[in-house]
Simulated assay, not measured.
Amino acid sequence: MPDWGTPLATGQVPDAHTTDSRLVSVDDAIFPAHSMTGVLAWARGVGWSARDLFGASSEGGAGDRLSYTRIRQGVQRAVHRHGGLNLACQTGGYKSISQLGLLGPALVAQPTVGAAIEFGLRHQLLAGSLLAHRFARDLGEPGACAIESPHLFEDAECASFLEIDHLLTNFNVLKILCGGQFPLIRVELPGHDREVFGTLARLLGAPVIGEARVARMVFDSDLLNIRNPNHDPHSCAYWEGLCEQEAQAIGLRTPATLLARLFSATGRLLPLEDIAERMHVSLRTLYRMLERDGIDYSQLQDKDRFIRAQQLLRLGVRSEDIAVDIGLSDARSFRRAFRRWAGMSPAEFREKDRVGSPPAIAH
């Protein structure tokens, strides 16, 4: 048996709603076998079984859980047998909503694409994610956002395979959530395999750029607002509850700090009413908790509104519409608030931004 790579160390699993992380060992058997459906499908095609890939005790059943070490062993055996990274294009493209376990129906039940992404990031380990996906919106491009995929464990030997495999699976899932189309602006990957990049560009319908700092798919933030016409609050609550139960059963959840609970996974400040409902407390209790932790919600709200206002001004949105978007009564209130935040009027900000002056800083 050849040497399938060097040993790995402990990694961290970021949680979408907390600044804390839970340490996870590469030997913790927490990853569901269904996350390897693409690799297992390829293996069957060449006459291999789950045991051939992952070891003597692996059956590859829906209820099986594997450690990262054993999954890594299987991936390396498959890549070695196949002879290249194009295998990741096959295995990732094979997977979609139905290969995500309980997370799949929970995503389909969400009210919007943005809500589905938020929930998916929070529970990504339930689907067997071997990368630490996160949402990014401050890209320096008006209207653009991204799902980034840094490594869960430092593993140079499997990094490229996992990035490509997970990228295609995420793309397939998002296409379903968007009703069949998920137009990408571009894809960025740390590698530089031109043959694989060409295959990916054809599959994704978007340019693929190499030598990136982190793997990510960049798309228009308007896609986050696509609504699910079949959303059912009762079904949504049911599947979310099952996901929470499974996460707790295998020890994946850590308590979120109060500050972290104030924000969605996409980085927007949530209304106090929504926060109280999520935490199952009254508004009065939430106010006391904020005071106890020294959190000034109005200050956070100003900062969130200011960031959003800058984005909309750069897109040419009218002051009246920006006021509605950020929750102010009218354009006059918005202009007054913006001058307080930026030290200039919205019109002055547009002009400075147009000529390339540094962006305003909130006070």
Rank of each mutant, 00 (worst) to 15 (best):
I147F: 05
I147G: 01
P150C: 09
P150D: 11
H151Y: 11
F153R: 03
D155W: 02
A156Q: 13
E157T: 04
A159Y: 13
S160V: 13
S160F: 09
F161P: 00
F161L: 04
F161A: 01
E163I: 13
E163W: 14
I164E: 03
D165W: 04
H166S: 15
L167N: 01
L167H: 01
N172P: 01
V173N: 05
I176M: 11
C178S: 08
C178K: 03
G179M: 08
Q181A: 15
F182Y: 01
F182H: 00
I185C: 08
R186Q: 07
R186Y: 02
E188Y: 09
L189A: 04
L189R: 00
L189Y: 02
G191Y: 06
H192M: 13
R194C: 09
R194D: 14
V196T: 05
V196P: 01
V196D: 02
F197L: 06
G198S: 05
R202W: 05
R202D: 10
L203Q: 09
L204N: 00
L204P: 00
A206I: 03
A206Q: 03
P207G: 04
P207E: 07
V208D: 03
I209D: 10
E211W: 12
E211C: 08
A215Y: 00
A215Q: 00
R216F: 09
M217I: 04
F219K: 01
F219P: 00
D220R: 07
S221T: 14
S221P: 10
S221R: 11
D222K: 13
L223G: 06
L224N: 05
L224W: 03
N225T: 14
I226M: 10
I226W: 07
N230A: 15
P233N: 04
Y238K: 13
W239G: 07
W239P: 09
E240R: 12
E244C: 11
A247Y: 05
A247S: 10
Q248W: 14
Q248Y: 15
I250K: 00
I250D: 02
G251V: 01
G251Q: 06
P255L: 04
P255Q: 03
P255A: 02
A256L: 13
A256H: 12
A256F: 13
L258I: 14
A260E: 14
L262E: 09
S264E: 14
